[in-house]
Design a protein around this nucleic acid. Structure first.
Lengths: 343, 343
DNA sequence: ATGAAAGCGCTAACAA
DNA sequence: TTGTTAGCGCTTTCAT
């Protein structure tokens, strides 16, 4: 069934049907009403594929994420999809892990489906992979690259603001030996988080202790390993700040295993505020990143970039807010092996 | 850029280009090779939208889920998407909560995009909502409706098998007062799970105690409330079996709050095996439902139904397997207020 | 082995 | 205010 069938039945031309469906004011209200009735009667559903073919756009945005299994992304996806429905767009989803090949293929598939824009949440990627998008004038939005270029906007999270709040909180409790368990070595976003943490410490006049810095992998295992290593050394921290919640969960788990009581014997701060944080015992103090805000920023970025393809993209920033729950408390001096050195 | 451009550049017709791209054997290998080179040179990407318009299919399957935020679904989605990529299909995702309206709209949007089939994981829905799909010969796959009809296949989880294993495990530990915290009242799947639990008890000769049955909501809160209520009554169970892991998490949380020691003072069994189960302390004993298997069954069901649209759909079953971890142990008699009644 | 051309459903420019 | 029609890119039938 198509518009011609409907038009025929309604005794008008397909152009009129098209106009009615698209709410053109150039139709006689009587005719319009009649056509609408026929459409209803015939249960006609228009085929936007034809329009896509004609104009080359699809009211579809692509979303590329590394791993839907990381609890951060379902939350993001939820908000993103909700917002897309509101602006009457479809979602084309691809998960690519950390495979450069998968990324290239996903982008190709999105191009084939004529997406109107792509949000690329994979933190690391070969710039050449997005070139086919740029060539074909498809706007791109990246996350946390902290850099815009022609046709590419970026949505960055204000890690520094978040860590600043966390350190303020810990410092006010009396902590000075604060460890950091970062992300996977070599990722840009890991470096960004580490730098933000260092700056936050410095802003509070707390010296950065090299011996309290660890790398993780944004997963539970990395947190466990780092905690194990921190506990093994003489100069233990009294608080551990992490690069994300899964890492924090691993830290907490390992701390439990070592028989430490939280938060009395060790404070822990996560980052993300995944649902699980609140289910943990004790519930995790963490820096919340509002997925809704990120999703909204991504869509705003998409539309901005689409409208300004010839210009440099724009940089968007999303704030991070400390949520104090149960894993932070004043340090338990008796247990500490070292006295605070500075400040 | 289109096939004509490529054809022109290669000195052939667009028909030949099409044949080369689709691997038709009717082209001279030399010509084919040359055309391939030109395609590569021009970075040509074909536009499958045109094919969709021409033939009415899209190599796209729709997936409708209630809530991506429930940790069961990201796992499922991950497997589903992986399998789709393998068969070179796209995913069109919609999350509909429990809104009947959202379901109707999602289905309409999928129809507009010419999906080749729809997997509908929303447990409850108005049959009229799927009629537009059936009318237009779009195959449908449901989950846990335990019923097939023309154009609709069903993928069911073998809850009974799962609960049978759980009860066998608990019974062998010496439990006889086994409570059940079910799903949301009125949902078909809640009834199915409850029935499966009852049958499993009966199969082991353990009488069903009405006073140990509770309703939940498939979320943490429901588990907490049910646990509170179970602890409040005189005849406490020694073990609690739940309708899903989130419920079990709520139960465990409430038990912790009440100062009970797990698993000594209460055994708990979940269902799903979400990632969090293993992170809990103690790690949750649960009935694993393999998302990969479900995803594979859904796709098999989709293809079967598509190929047999005129016939009754098929019913698929996916097994459930007990994973024994840390929340089950022999009952702690001293603490119990009632003696086992039967068996 | 290759090419010409029709037609999928829709929209908008143009005609009436 | 309404209708006619070209054309978006592709595949396939038919012709050569």
């Amino acid at each position: 069934m198509n518009m011609r069938t409907v038009a025929h039945r309604a005794g008008v031309s397909s152009a009129t049907v098209s106009r009615v469906i698209n709410g053109s004011p150039l139709v006689n209200p009587k005719t319009a009403e009649h056509v609408r009735r026929v459409i209803e009667e015939m249960q006609f559903i228009p085929n936007p594929i034809a329009t896509t073919l004609k104009y080359g756009w699809s009211r579809t945005y692509g979303l590329i994420i590394p791993d839907i299994t990381n609890p951060f992304y379902p939350d993001f996806l939820h908000s993103f999809e909700e917002l897309l429905v509101k602006i009457d767009h479809e979602l084309m989803l691809a998960t690519v892990g950390s495979s450069a090949d998968a990324l290239v293929h996903s982008i190709r598939r999105m191009l084939m489906r004529q997406v109107d824009g792509v949000v690329l949440l994979a933190s690391e990627f070969d710039t050449r992979a997005v070139e086919p998008l740029l060539t074909r004038k498809v706007p791109v939005v990246t996350a946390d690259r902290r850099r815009a270029q022609q046709g590419i906007s970026d949505v960055a999270i204000d890690f520094e603001g978040g860590y600043l709040q966390a350190i303020a909180h810990l410092a006010s409790l009396g902590h000075t030996d604060i460890a950091f368990v970062g992300g996977t070595r070599g990722l840009r976003t890991s470096m960004v988080r580490l730098t933000a943490f260092r700056r936050a410490l410095e802003a509070h006049g707390i010296p950065v202790q090299q011996a309290l810095l660890r790398e993780g992998d944004y997963r539970v295992e990395g947190g466990e390993a780092a905690a194990r290593s921190l506990l093994a050394q003489k100069e233990r921290p009294s608080a551990i700040v992490t690069a994300n919640d899964l890492t924090a969960l691993g830290v907490v788990r390992e701390l439990h295993r070592a028989g430490l009581h939280l938060p009395q014997e060790m404070s822990v701060v996560g980052l993300d505020d995944i649902a699980m944080s609140d289910l943990l015992f004790p519930p995790l103090t963490t820096i919340r990143i509002d997925r809704r805000q990120i999703a909204a920023a991504c869509i705003e970025a998409l539309e901005y970039t689409k409208a300004n393809l010839s210009k440099q993209g724009k940089r968007f920033s999303v704030e991070a807010t400390l949520v104090v729950r149960g894993t932070t408390a004043a340090p338990f001096r008796a247990r500490r092996r070292s006295a605070p050195s500075g400040a």
